[in-house]
Computed example of a mutant assay.
Amino acid sequence: MSTTTAATSVPVLPATADLTAAAARIAPYVVRTPLLRGPVTAAHGPRLLLKAEHRQLGGSFKTRGAANAVLALDADRVVTGSSGNHGIALARIARTLGLRLTVVLAAGAAPAKAAAIRALGAETVRVAGGVAEREEHAAALAATTGAVLVPSSDHPLVVAGQGTVGTEILTDAPDTGTLYVPVGGGGLLAGVCLAAAGRPVRVVGVEPALTPRYARSLAAGHPVQLPPSSTVADGLRGQRPGHVTYPIVRDRVDDLIAVGEAEIIAAADLLRRHGVDAEPSGAVALAGALRAGRREHAVAVVSGGNTPARLRALHRPPTAPPTTTAPPTTTAHPEEHTP
């Protein structure tokens, strides 16, 4: 599966079948994260579940797309641009497989995540500007060095890997009414849209109000680029929808919700009191579910848990593909949902 056609440069989009292939390919490198019972709120009662990607190896869902791309592309040198979690995911896999990795970071990238990437053996390069400048530099670096470029979201293999989050949710909770998905570059949202194709489930993307790039783009009828953002959800600072992700989201997403900084922080605090130690980006989907207030069976994706404590633990990575499930990131956690 290539990214574009040679004659037209039209992106080749992943299909539902690619999610099945991705699930088989990445199985030795990821864990099948559980659905947890969510916090009981006036809006949702006991019917809200949480997809626990904060308990994924590498601390976020990014491990899925990173593993799928690296394994399928069979590269020995990789370049990427990342806000942190994608770089961490790639660095873990690169260390396991003996690959050389360079991660390009924007000026506002979290220092703790940059340190974790370096501790895992990857090289980091920091550039001025925002996500757009980061991606331009990563593409240029890959072209000049001959490395394989593995974007954090805008690649069909990455999208297919992220989509396994959606297939797992719909297998474990087939009566789900709405899936709430955090939106940065859009790889996770696009993947979940593919997983939900032909299924009677609403897919709702949740964006920080400071950077509603998908909402603005859908309203305009084409991808638009926003200025760099300083949202507390540092993993969701993407400025523009991707060529691969945009048409998938456009054709399947049911709604987009914007949540403010206070709502994101409040959702992260609520999760922490509930025993789920999520980073702000990982709490955005719950913030969207709370804002929507629909009384239905719903699932919010807790996309990441790379808090300072988790990042310190990532400095001690495994040296071989995992064979057991990931330990919980907190000493106490909510009861798991049994379908």
Rank of each mutant, 00 (worst) to 15 (best):
G129D: 05
G130P: 02
G130Y: 01
G130V: 01
A132G: 04
E133N: 13
E133S: 14
E133P: 08
E133D: 15
R134W: 12
R134Q: 14
E135I: 01
E135D: 15
E135F: 03
E135Q: 09
E135K: 14
E136V: 10
E136Y: 01
H137V: 12
H137Y: 15
A138M: 13
A138C: 11
A139W: 05
A140Q: 14
L141D: 06
L141N: 06
A142F: 08
A142D: 09
A142M: 05
A143H: 11
A143T: 01
A143G: 00
T144E: 15
T145I: 00
T145P: 03
T145Q: 06
G146R: 03
G146Q: 02
A147H: 00
A147R: 11
A147W: 04
V148E: 14
L149E: 08
L149W: 13
L149Q: 12
P151A: 01
P151G: 00
P151I: 02
S152F: 05
D154K: 11
H155M: 08
H155D: 15
H155L: 07
H155W: 04
H155R: 08
P156K: 08
P156N: 04
L157K: 12
L157W: 14
V158M: 01
V158H: 01
V158W: 06
V159M: 06
V159D: 13
V159F: 02
A160I: 12
G161Y: 02
G161L: 06
G161V: 09
Q162G: 09
Q162K: 03
Q162V: 04
Q162L: 01
G163A: 01
G163R: 08
T164M: 12
T164C: 10
T164W: 07
V165L: 03
V165M: 07
T167E: 05
E168Y: 09
E168S: 13
E168P: 09
E168W: 11
E168K: 07
I169K: 01
I169Q: 09
I169L: 00
I169M: 08
L170K: 02
D172K: 06
A173N: 02
A173H: 14
A173S: 05
A173W: 04
P174D: 10
D175F: 02
T176V: 15
G177K: 04
G177N: 01
G177M: 06
T178R: 14
T178I: 14
T178Y: 02
L179F: 10
L179G: 11
Y180S: 02
Y180A: 00
Y180L: 05
V181L: 03
V181I: 15
V181W: 04
P182F: 11
P182L: 05
V183H: 09
G185Y: 03
G185N: 13
G185V: 04
G186K: 12
G187Y: 08
L188S: 05
L188K: 01
L189W: 13
L189D: 12
L189Y: 12
A190L: 11
A190N: 12
A190D: 04
